[in-house]
Design a protein around this nucleic acid. Structure first.
Lengths: 210, 210, 210, 210
DNA sequence: GATGAATGAGACTTCATTCAT
DNA sequence: GATGAATGAAGTCTCATTCAT
């Protein structure tokens, strides 16, 4: 009645479309998007070479989906950010944002790295429901938070929250990108201790003479 | 009897090795590293496909050299940075650094984009005399400048200059990277007015309550 | 409990085998045999991809059946040829044969076109009850008619009826084939006026000096 | 100085482009255009799989060239047609045309057979210098000859030479096509004795009552 | 050393056929 | 019997690299 299931799903898995996305995501997390071939994915999924095309228009479509899934997995793994403007202290809240930002970038940037060479895949990814193109979402989320704190009087009334958010998220990039360029794998991306504290202190107090 | 010179050098040019690097650099500046083939480079250099292998171990090696040259070209094009700790005002000096940083990143990042997919090439690049992998040099230069100003008393005595430099250079990344991910070509990368001023003001004064 | 019927037959249609042949025939009439895939046929029949193999050994067998059906449809569409040796005039009778021949070839040849590339399918078709491979039937029918007229004295007693039939049917091919080779679709195959009259006159009178 | 030659050309052959066309032509002559793959051609030419693309834009282009060459080979093999209007007898001249036509069709039609399924290749072929699409040239050549004979008074003054040419060439098609449809290889296409004589006699004298 | 055609592995994709449900 | 996803062989084409000239 129902058609045959893939041998790889014998274990009572989900459907094969998800299975393929998961396999691609696994490979992306492990080796990035760099030399990823259709055959690699099929092999990782323990599935015939051609299946992919029963579920996706082409390789790019699967890749876009896998990246999307990868981003969402990373977010899910980090859990909800329990930060409320006005709650706790601004310092601790900012630290929470930055910890999360660093972790997210460390997980996501390597995957995006190989993508800069493939404008098409990027376009496909951008067309998906929740774009969040490379942490852009996080930056405006942070800007919103800062704005709210400023309105509550916990930040200087003339604070340029957009610029501040850009600097903070940018610092996360700056910490991670050069290591990628040096070829460090995602796993070894370790953040130097005190880095986040320094950021928070500096952005709050400034470096100008008091 | 001296060996034959490449057709493209008949005019009594430099040596062929440099000629090839220059051709590759030209292509990188124009189209990025994305779909660059050996044949593209040979054609741009007006030279036979195979010469490359008389001067470089393989394509990656040439690419690494061309990237290196590209970075140095960009720096040279921007001229010397005439900033002296203690000179002028700190604000104007910082603005000079940031203007330069933005221009440099806009010129260089697109070239590196396609490279993230090629760890080998990156490794080769890192092995070259003057690494400066993607603005790393600029950041420490800026940190040095800030340190000097702090020692001169024009910045807060407890200013964390490394963190500040990271934030500032990171903000430059943050401005340019997302646009690359959206596929904007290098030419259209225009910086919003006032961005630099905002950065300088914010980093000096901080956003905390006074 | 009788076996399940295909979804497409729920309306209480004929049996599925015929349904598939009809679907394939429709596609052949519409687009020729060129890029016809098994999936195309299944989709046209609104039926699962695999059913085909419950009723036919393989794709070729279905194709052969569909072609056969296509030929018979074309014949049926043209109606019975109401020509009787000795009836009416020979001229008018020949014109009737040729009009029919041209119409039949125009309908059938495009379908066969893609088939010349598949010797297997042709062999299968030839094995079917009423081969009639591409007008062969028409030619011998015409030869029989001519023979009868000769016996009735309405043609020269030494007329070579087989050769005459070959020339006439061949002229129909010659009119249609080159247009197919030029890629004209079946729909645009229009016969130049006066062509049939010219054929009849020439075959009757000859072109030698009287 | 000069680049390397293909191993297959070691015997001091022509250039590889011609070598490839010749190989493809050989395969076409042997098996038709039906299931001809790029790899088949490369193997027949004893050459690497990819070479083809150093000399032709794609497979279709090579195929078109090979077909063109095949047609010209067939013509060359048959030699010049030494027929002059007014010379010899009309009967013998017509026989010469028909012998040539049959031989040409027998050699060429099988090659074109597989092509009806590939409109693109046909278009490419038509774009080549000497189209001669499938014997079209022969028909008008024959019509010209008949016209000249009519003007010389050796044919009936009201003879419809175009129709006559169409019938004669069409008869050649009719003799060969059905055998192709039956899957007979080019080699076995033997013309029944007396067929040509019958054609000539019939077209000259007609089959109507005298 | 320079030349540039030859090489051939490997990428993406299609599609006839199978088979668990 | 029907279903339609899974299978995997095969096809076309690209491109870094080699090598006779």
């Amino acid at each position: 009645m129902s058609p045959r299931r893939a041998a790889a799903l014998r274990g009572g898995d989900r459907d094969l479309r998800e299975h393929l996305i998961a396999a691609a995501e696994r490979l992306i997390a492990r080796r990035g998007t760099a030399g990823l071939t259709v055959r690699d994915i099929a092999r990782e999924a323990q599935v015939a070479d051609g299946v992919l095309y029963n579920h996706f228009g082409d390789k790019e479509e699967l890749l876009a989906q896998a990246l999307h899934a990868h981003v969402r997995s990373a977010e899910r793994a980090l859990g909800e950010l329990a930060v409320r403007p006005g709650g706790d202290t601004v310092e601790r809240n900012l630290r929470a944002y930055l910890d999360r930002g660093l972790a997210l970038h460390a997980a996501i940037l390597p995957a995006f790295a190989g993508l800069l060479a493939r404008p098409d895949t990027l376009a496909r990814l951008a067309a998906l429901p929740n774009p969040m193109a490379a942490g852009r979402g996080l930056r405006s989320e942070l800007a919103d938070y800062l704005r709210a704190e400023r309105d509550l009087g916990r930040l200087a009334p003339d604070a340029d929250v957009d610029v501040a958010a850009t600097m903070l998220i940018g610092a996360c990039h700056e910490l991670i990108l050069p290591r990628l360029l040096r070829g460090e794998s995602a796993a070894e991306l370790r953040i130097p201790p005190g880095f986040v504290d320094g950021l928070v202190a500096t952005v709050l107090a400034g470096i100008g003479p008091h």
